[in-house]
Amino acid sequence: MARQVRTSPSAAYDLGYHVVWCPKYRRPVFGGRVKTRLEKLIQAKADERGWEIVALEVMPDHVHLFVKPHPKNSPSYVANQFKGFTSHHLRAEFPHLRSRLPTLWSRSYFVATVGAVSAQTVRRYIETQYERAPKAGGHA
């Protein structure tokens, strides 16, 4: 992946975050229409904030996202923007998510910064999640 330096009036930057988060109790609730809607909501939030999504993979029990935000947005802010926005909309649109889970997302998340050298590696890792998914009964 070639380095893409973005600019704003006060900064030039090439910053990426690999963010992973799970539903409460790591329940496998993301399939079918819920998965499709979650992907659209994540894209909508990124578009609203002006963030670039490089790679996204919604697994049944977790989400992998490689996003390039503005440097003024901290990793915790980015993760919480996606989690809060998607939880609000998914729980309103899919009542079974309200009845099965007290909250949609667990409080925790993983985030790592991604440099230009390893960006392709992160993208390949996210895009091949299903190839590496554990067999039934296993954990990721």
Rank of each mutant, 00 (worst) to 15 (best):
G84F: 11
H88Y: 06
S10A: 06
T113Y: 02
R124Q: 15
S76E: 14
A92H: 13
L65V: 03
S8K: 11
A46N: 07
A92C: 07
Y17I: 11
P95I: 04
H96G: 11
Q4F: 06
P75L: 14
P28G: 08
T121H: 05
A133S: 13
A136R: 09
S106T: 09
A44R: 12
S76K: 12
V114M: 01
D47W: 02
V111M: 15
Y125P: 03
E52W: 13
D14K: 04
S74E: 12
G137V: 09
F94L: 08
G115T: 07
S99T: 13
E52V: 05
F82N: 04
A46R: 11
F110S: 03
L65P: 02
A55W: 01
D61F: 04
G84W: 04
F66Q: 01
H64A: 00
G32P: 05
D61M: 04
E127C: 14
I126F: 02
G138S: 07
L65C: 12
G115F: 00
V111N: 05
S74C: 04
Y17W: 13
Q120K: 08
W105V: 10
S8Q: 04
R6P: 12
P134K: 13
Y77Q: 05
I53C: 02
H88S: 12
V78W: 13
M1Y: 10
S10I: 10
R107H: 15
N73A: 13
K35T: 05
A116N: 10
W21L: 01
L104H: 06
S8I: 12
V111K: 15
L38N: 00
K40P: 01
V63D: 00
H62F: 02
T113P: 01
L97Y: 10
A133I: 08
E39V: 13
L15S: 06
L97A: 13
S118H: 04
A79H: 15
S10M: 11
G32M: 08
R37K: 03
G138C: 13
K24R: 15
G31K: 14
A92L: 11
D61N: 12
R49Q: 14
S87F: 15
E93N: 03
N73K: 08
Q43L: 03
A79V: 09
V19D: 00
L104C: 05
Y25P: 10
K68Q: 15
